[in-house]
Design a binder for these strands. Structure first.
Ligand SMILES: [Mn+2]
Ligand SMILES: [Mn+2]
Length: 682
DNA sequence: GAAAGCG
DNA sequence: CGCTTTCAACGCTTG
DNA sequence: CAAGCG
């Protein structure tokens, strides 16, 4: 150690402090930067002294007792004394870290699944390493962690790897994967505590911390609070920054509500109270909420905000108004008189009149949008909303309880991504999975609209065995919102369009892995099938389904009718299966699938459907089916990694549509192809 | 979610 | 009138 | 043919 350049003999500090990263818009270029994935957890310094371990939070509190397993693991590190720097996270199977899961683990006192990701080393065995170049500090740390983990397949304490250079590419790739962002560090830098410019953070979405300053009463049937009112310090003035009403599970919402009730205050904490906030309960601003949002409106409030968790490791005074916030709101003088919540009118009558969420800034997307909470008139119209001109009943009904995602939020999701979803879903007959009481309620499949669904959504009559039946299809955003109003959580589409129903314009090969098939194997199978289809002269585009598998979608010029098309698909699937009998089957029977991947070619029948691109799934985690490009099909991808909560990060980072070439790649199925697939010419 | 049925 | 009940797919494969 | 499948 003494031989190490920069190491200085020094006593172990009693109260170590951490280096902090400064926010930047883009990742730095050049080989003199190292880049790490940004974790979504708690920043923790570990102080090791003669077998004794102390875990210290960002604001200097002793959190050792919160993480007994990690403490125990650190006690076994082969060091006399050390200061380690890292982040404690809840690590999911797909390699992502979730702050929500971390907090749930902490409040349930079940911290066994948590992992300590170490990325720096301040002090080791009598020497201060602050002046040792970063790369060397990380090498020493790496060896230390490796030596301790030799016989551990799933270690609790891990070394955090980095890539050198290629910052902008790494950042783009991280965002396309739906991650939070990256941290960039100067390769030869010393360890400097406090905020500096040698550690930089680039984020994939707007995410900031705000003080919880109040809450609204819940709307019909809901418990606890409806949404939180947020603020931040601007100098010594507390400024209102908007509300957040999604992102909490039921449990979290109720426990947060208990804490807020103890903080309730008669007095509005804002010198300039927000306008039109009726029936708000104010609280003393002490709790800190981490919030993700799409943008600031011109009024200086958050748009599309979503709660990510409570920060227990910061001080309220640290919460300053971000520089990106428009100055507008602070200048504005109060119009409305501050209300102290007194159960005025009926409980339900305490309805927020209008959220400051439709401003000019909010109107800039391609698709016309109007997202309003309707004014409370008397009592009849209470609790209704409108999106894209379509009336939503029960906008506050929770459809995904673990995420607190409501019907209004689902409608806003489709409004937000309309330009992505509409080209891929328009003019195709639909089947729906409806869950009017949410994902965990009773769900059912629906093919025919009957009375349930808005007359404004177009129908096409399709001949069936006996007579002709109506099917829904969409051509525009309001139709999608109409489906949301009906409680549709999954949209499944035909492989043909309403103007050419009998001739498919796309095929779907649905790869359904058995439970114990690894991702690697699914993807290997997918590439082999891709090759097989390309050899026939057709293109394939991959789509992760939001469930467990993957689709290969084949663009066609409509020519053959359904029966011939399906025969073609069956021949391909059976050929693939017979060439790889151990890993594949073309037999739908579950008993024949054990340990294998089923090539479900049966999506390619008349009236068969497949999940639509960008449709949500009625599954845990609020996943979404997402078109990807073939070069994204690798170890980083999982079939359900994109969700209602993180898809926006991906779309924002995409340089181009991963299915950009889809239209140009259309080809008819020729008799040559049929012959090559082993079918007789027609 | 919405219409029909029931007390 | 308000509360409860009912309904919301189906064709093809497989053994 | 009934049962299973998505
Ligand atoms: Mn599937
Ligand atoms: Mn399938």
């Amino acid at each position: 150690m003494a031989a190490l350049d920069g190491a200085v003999k020094k006593a172990l500090p009693q109260k170590p402090s951490a280096a902090l990263a400064s926010a930047v818009k883009a990742a730095p270029e050049g080989d003199d930067w190292l880049h790490e994935i940004k974790f979504d957890g708690y920043r923790i310094l570990a102080r090791l002294h003669k077998g004794d371990v102390q875990l210290i939070s960002r604001n200097g509190n002793d959190w050792t007792r919160k993480f007994p397993e990690i403490r125990h693991r650190l006690e076994k590190l082969a060091v006399q004394d050390a200061i380690l720097d890292g982040e404690i996270i809840a690590l999911a199977d797909d390699g992502t870290s979730s702050f929500r899961n971390l907090q749930e683990a902490l409040s349930a006192r079940d911290t066994r699944g948590l992992v300590y990701q170490l990325f720096d080393l301040q002090h080791l065995d009598g020497y201060n390493l602050a002046a040792v170049p970063l790369q060397q500090r990380k090498e020493i740390l790496h060896q230390l962690v490796n030596a301790a983990n030799t016989d551990d397949a799933s270690p609790l304490v891990r070394y955090t790897d980095h890539i050198r250079g290629h910052g902008p590419e790494f950042f783009g790739q991280s965002c396309r994967l739906g991650l939070e962002g990256i941290i960039s560090k100067k390769i030869d830098s010393h360890y400097r505590t406090g905020r500096g410019t040698i550690w930089l953070k680039a984020k994939c979405a707007n995410q900031e911390e705000f003080l919880i300053c109040g809450y609204t009463r819940p709307n019909g049937g809901r418990k606890g609070f409806g949404s939180l009112l947020l603020g931040a310090w601007h100098g010594d003035e507390l400024v209102y920054t908007g509300r957040v009403g999604t992102g909490f599970s039921q449990n979290l919402l109720l426990s947060l509500y208990e804490r807020l009730r103890e903080l309730t205050s008669e007095e509005c904490p804002f010198p300039s109270p927000p306008e039109n906030e009726v029936g708000v309960r104010w609280v003393t601003p002490t709790l800190i909420a981490e919030v993700e949002f799409t943008e600031w409106t011109r009024d200086g409030v958050l748009r599309h905000s979503s709660f990510r968790g409570l920060r227990e490791d910061k001080e309220p005074a640290e919460i300053q108004l971000p520089e990106a916030a428009p100055q507008h709101a602070q200048v504005k003088k109060p119009k409305a008189v501050a209300q102290t919540a007194k159960g005025a009118q009926t409980a339900k009558g305490a309805q927020t009149a209008k959220v400051a969420q439709t401003t000019e800034a909010a109107q800039t997307t391609k698709v016309a949008q109007t997202t309003n909470v309707a004014p409370a008139t008397k009592k009849a119209r209470v609790n209704q909303a409108e999106v894209a001109g379509v009336r939503l009943s029960n906008p506050d009904r929770i459809l995904f309880p673990d995420q607190g995602i409501t019907k209004l939020h689902l409608a806003q999701y489709y409004e937000d991504i309309a330009e992505w979803v509409l080209p891929l879903i328009s003019n195709r007959p639909l089947s729906l999975v409806r869950c009017p009481d949410g994902r965990t309620g009773e769900c059912f499949f629906q093919k025919h609209p009957r009375t349930v669904i808005s007359e404004a959504i177009p129908r096409v009559d399709i001949p069936e065995k006996e007579g002709t039946k109506p099917y829904l299809y969409v051509t525009a955003l309001p139709h999608l919102i109409g489906l949301v109003q009906a409680g549709a959580l999954e949209l499944h589409v035909w492989g043909s369009r309403v103007d050419k129903l009998e001739q498919p314009d796309q095929l779907v090969f649905d790869l359904d892995p058995a439970a114990n098939v690894s991702l690697k194997e699914i993807f290997r199978v997918a590439f082999e099938l891709k090759q097989r289809i390309e050899d026939l002269g057709l293109a394939t585009f991959p789509r992760i389904t939001g469930g467990k598998g993957l689709h290969l979608v084949v663009p066609l010029v409509p020519k053959l009718e359904w029966e011939e098309a399906k025969n073609f698909c069956r021949a391909i699937a059976q050929q693939a299966a017979s060439d790889d009998k151990t890993r594949l089957t073309a037999n739908m029977a579950k008993s024949k699938r054990h340990g294998k991947t089923f090539i479900d070619y049966l999506r390619n029948g008349r009236s068969a459907t497949a999940i639509a691109s960008y449709s949500t799934r009625a599954r845990p985690g609020a996943p979404v089916a997402v078109p990807v490009s073939w070069d994204e099909v690798n170890d980083s991808l999982t079939p359900n990694r994109y969700t209602l909560e993180n898809l926006r990060r991906r779309l924002g980072a995409l340089q181009s549509d991963p299915w950009q070439e889809f239209e140009e790649a259309r080809r008819p199925i020729t008799s040559k192809m049929l012959a090559k697939a082993g079918l007789k010419k027609t």
